[in-house]
């Protein structure tokens, strides 16, 4: 998985391309920790190019959500693809991780 981030005006966008599984999940946690440490706790994870996520990847997203909220911000996800949506639905995590059609819209309302 290729992970990168860009700090925008009011949030940071992390782009995750590839498979979010037990190999890449720790890397996502590290990147969110780095973004939060640099002072941005409003984070959107752009999943447009994430074709696959397993429960390890989901666990990382939940851990990252907690880290962002503990720092006073939030973590939202955007452009969710069908396999990821299926995992979110089967685990009922679609109620916990707020999903937006695009990264730009994730913090567009506040």
């Amino acid at each position: 998985m290729d992970l990168s981030y860009e700090v925008k005006d009011s949030y940071a966008e992390i782009t995750a391309a590839g498979r979010l599984n037990m190999v890449s999940a720790p890397k996502l946690r590290d990147m969110v920790a780095e973004v939060v440490a640099k002072g941005t706790s409003r984070i959107v994870v752009n999943l447009e190019q994430t074709a696959f996520m397993d429960s390890s990847g989901l666990g990382a997203l939940i851990g990252c959500l907690k880290a962002a909220r503990q720092a006073g911000g939030d973590l939202r996800i955007a452009s969710v693809q069908p396999q990821v949506q299926m995992v979110l639905g089967l685990t009922s995590m679609d109620k916990v991780l707020t999903s937006y059609p695009s990264a730009a819209e994730a913090f567009g309302d506040d």
Binding site: S55, S56, G59, I62, L90, T91, M93
Partner: peptide, 19 residues
């Protein structure tokens, strides 16, 4: 059993069952 919202692990076997 599928764990609740705060859990960061423990969903694998429940997910397999559902799939």
């Amino acid at each position: 059993v599928m764990p609740g919202g705060e859990a960061e692990s423990g969903r694998g076997l429940a997910l397999i069952r559902a799939l």
